[in-house]
């Protein structure tokens, strides 16, 4: 490759990243200073407490699927943040939490997350490492096994949060047939319709990423949410400008967004 120290055709990406990062950091800083921040209601997340409570009442376990992707998939990371909150509640209620994994690196991370959450909830004694395990890297081998867990262990609540592929509907329909409350959330656009039809609550796209801020109400996370919204406004403004200019045949503005 070349000798240059900067690729100019990526300047727009750099500007995008810098502006966005700056906005996020600004609002995180604001939040740190103690500014009150509002978050709108997210239906699927309102139901999390109820769902865990139900499992406790029925004396049945909770099943948590952190998606089928790798740890480098940001959707998985978002799911782990939610897992941490769910595990904490479950530990406080002493409800069994089963987390089967299909990615071998996600598995030890899930163990760490749940262990830390139990500790955080003041119940390190209820942590059961044997309930968080790897099954197989095969997509449908994994699904076959999870279906088995659903019909045999009959969890009262199923969480499907993270990245999903075609298996989404197999999981959700099997779960529906066992009568479990189901909360799903994914950024996989092609799978959203199935979760929406077969689950009780579904977090759509970005809601998955907003979830950990919503559940934890930690100011730092809420601040970043505010930064995201401001960026959306900016994007809206830029797109509108681009649309207007394009309507008059001026494509130069839109072309600034071509990436190399």
């Amino acid at each position: 490759m070349g000798q240059e120290w900067f690729s100019l055709d990526r300047l727009n990406v750099l500007i995008g990243v810098v502006v966005y990062t700056a906005l996020l950091l600004y609002f995180i800083y604001q939040a740190k200073k103690g500014k009150e921040l509002f978050v709108r209601k997210i239906a699927g997340l309102e139901a999390v407490d109820e769902a865990i409570g139900r499992a406790t009442e029925m004396g049945k376990p909770i099943l948590y699927i952190p998606g089928l992707s790798t740890i480098s998939d940001v959707a998985t990371l978002a799911s782990l943040n939610i897992l941490s909150k769910v595990a904490k509640k479950a530990a406080q209620y002493e409800t069994r939490l089963i987390v089967p994994c299909t990615d071998p690196i996600v598995m030890p991370v899930c163990q760490e997350v749940v262990k830390a959450a139990c500790l955080d909830g003041g119940r390190p004694d209820v942590y059961r490492e044997e309930d968080i395990y790897y099954i197989t890297y095969s997509q449908f081998g994994y699904v076959a096994a999870v279906d088995g867990i659903m019909v045999r262990e009959k969890p009262a609540t199923n969480f499907f949060l993270g990245m999903f592929w075609a298996e989404s509907l197999i999981l959700a329909e099997t779960g529906a047939s066992t009568g479990a409350i189901q909360i799903a959330g994914t950024d996989a656009i092609s799978q959203l319709p199935f979760f929406i039809t077969a689950c009780d609550y579904t977090l759509i796209g970005e809601e998955l990423y907003a979830a950990s801020a919503y559940l934890s109400r930690e100011p730092l996370s809420l601040g970043s949410l505010k930064g995201q919204d401001w960026t959306k406004l900016i994007i809206g403004g830029l797109v509108l400008t681009g649309v207007i200019l394009s309507t008059f045949g001026l494509r130069f503005f839109a072309n600034y967004f071509t990436t190399g």
Binding site: R10, N12, V13, G16, V74, G242, S246, T247, F257
Partner: peptide
């Protein structure tokens, strides 16, 4: 981070900037 900015944001913005 940069890949997402490129693919999911800038390119999609550009795709939306069509003549109204």
């Amino acid at each position: 981070i940069p890949a997402t900015m490129q693919m999911r944001i800038l390119e999609q913005m550009k795709g939306t900037m069509q003549p109204f």
